[in-house]
Amino acid sequence: MTVPVGASPQVFAEASLSVNTVRAYRSDLRQFARWRAGFLDHEISEPHELEQVITAPVDPTEVAAFLADKANAVLPDGGQRYAPATISRYVAAIDWEHARRGHTPPGTTPIVRDVLKGIRRTRSVPVRRAKPMTLKALQTALLKIDVADLQTGALGTRDQALLLFGFVGAFRESELTALTVADLRLVDGEGVYARVRKSKTDQDGAGRIKVLRQGANPVTCAPCAYVRLSRLMLAQDASGEAGLFAALTGASLAVHVCADGLGADRLPPSMPFFRAVSKWGLYRTTGISPTTVGKAVARRAQAAGLGENGWSGHSLRAGFVTEARNAGATDVEIMNQTHHTNAATLQIYDREYAPLIRNAVTRMRL
């Protein structure tokens, strides 16, 4: 976020967290305010009805009652309405609100801490993780995209680049959607250098580079996808719909285009690289949201006959780690691309997506 000159200490304090984190905290605090105001889960509340509801300071026993109420809430089918992770997030939001107003965070008190621990032990449910989009699945999905169709070619070209960038660069959804034209640079003989200016593990914005290397197959060559999408957006921006249609005519994934470069013209540096597409099949000047990444993955997977369930934006990142593990990559090699800061996190991927990697059972002659 941008902080103006003369900003107050409170503004700088809020800038210590990402915009998404602050937005999530405020959303969770609204849930707490609704509960304090007496609204049930299915009841609709108007903003003015919550304006006078205090969310800090609140007695820890009341916070504990709120958590227990959420833990006991059930859906019509009998399932849990709120997962322990969601309830833990509520505590984080309430603690944040108390701390920033100079009060003791309820989450540090024995009653809240013990109630939360009990909820985690008795209400735990298996975490539903994204289905990894492996290289074979990625190729299958990409080959089903028609980048020459006059109605859907703009969307197809964007999605093809989106899926390739997400997989090869092991990007988080928020990192993908934050990329601007200025963040990307085509390096001859190597690939595309992508600067991630800020991420989940780099809130201070020091920035790091991901390299999207050239692929032997033009279908899975990220630099080729970068060139195709750049040229197509340039054609539309220069000559409108006619320019876009002319550029789509004869477009193909069968040949490499990365060696040809971008040409003399360039897109505005500050423009989002992954732009929204209108219902008429034209590029907008606005960027896409992280949610759009997941929708694109699910849409392309379903169109390729890979099933409807389990796909999300994280499928690309999970697919990269899975393929890297199967290829024998070390923790350091994987982390150089994923930008994980803790190797222990990769063990989650091992357990969920590649359970035979570094598993003693593979040494047994069964």
Rank of each mutant, 00 (worst) to 15 (best):
A206P: 00
R365Y: 09
S315P: 05
L155H: 02
A170K: 00
K136H: 12
L253N: 13
G79Q: 10
I54M: 13
P126L: 09
D204R: 14
R325I: 01
D69N: 09
G313H: 04
V19P: 11
I94F: 10
H314P: 11
R317H: 00
L179Y: 08
F66R: 08
D77W: 12
M271Y: 06
I54H: 12
Q347M: 13
A318L: 01
A296P: 03
Q151S: 14
G240K: 14
A324Q: 15
G328H: 07
P76N: 06
G287Y: 01
L262M: 08
A33F: 00
P106N: 12
L29R: 05
Q337W: 04
T122A: 14
L50H: 02
T104F: 11
S27Q: 13
I145D: 03
Q302Y: 05
V321M: 09
Q203A: 14
G207N: 08
T341Q: 13
E49F: 09
D202W: 05
E62H: 11
L306Y: 08
A99W: 00
I288S: 01
S315Q: 07
G79F: 02
K198G: 14
A296G: 09
T292G: 00
I111N: 06
C221R: 02
V3C: 04
E173T: 08
S174W: 03
L229P: 07
P272T: 04
I94K: 04
R26N: 13
